[in-house]
Amino acid sequence: MFHRANLRNNSKNGRSQVGQNRNSKKKPVAKLTLITEDNESFTVCKKVAEMSMFFKNMLQDTEGIPAPFIVPNVSGYDLKKIIEYCSYHCLDTDCPNDNDSLRSRRDRKIGHWDETFVRNIINKDGDPVIDNLVGLTKAAYFLDIPGLIWLMTKSIANTIDPKPIAEIREIFNVPVPSEREEEILQR
């Protein structure tokens, strides 16, 4: 009896696996071609692209994969980083990517992978940190990726956090205000 049951189970499993394989052969992974404003082209899986609410809504509305898709307001560098983030997090269930879960998890801390991700943005070509952070934040905002927006705004806040006003102005290249302006601000 034991052997028979085992065999039955195996055959069931085997069938279902074959079925799955057939299905997967039938359905090739849907891919989307994206073109940035500086004419760089990227190909991404549908699942990765759907991390962005912008693409998700668009794919739902158009009912299919459109022709090469132009992403205005996003540079090649930013899109590359966004794809890197989305590729990692599209399978990560611990990392919430919708506004409701982000709101409920206020005590959330930056994970290890995210920390390295942000550190790499900072090290890119030795450019000023804040330029890249702000650029990527804006791109994430444009493409509506709540998880990345949270990470970027948190990183910018960490850049500002323990610093005096003069240093914040230096980081953001804000000219020192005149005495009158300072007075208005103080008020």
């Binding site: 934040t137 804006k138 905002y141 927006i149 949270w150 705004t153 948190k154 910018i156 806040a157 960490n158 500002i160 956090d161 323990p162 610093k163 005096p164 006003i165 914040i168 102005r169 953001f172 804000v174 205000p177 601000l185 103080q186």
Partner: peptide, 29 residues
């Protein structure tokens, strides 16, 4: 986005926050 950034800044009036970064940010520009 600025609102989201400032949401992550400390507020010394609330217990547990050490510095008044929100006030510093308000005086930047």
């Amino acid at each position: 986005l600025l609102q989201k950034v400032f949401k992550n800044l400390g507020d010394r009036r609330i217990r547990g926050h050490r510095c008044s970064d929100l006030r510093s940010a308000a005086l930047v520009c």
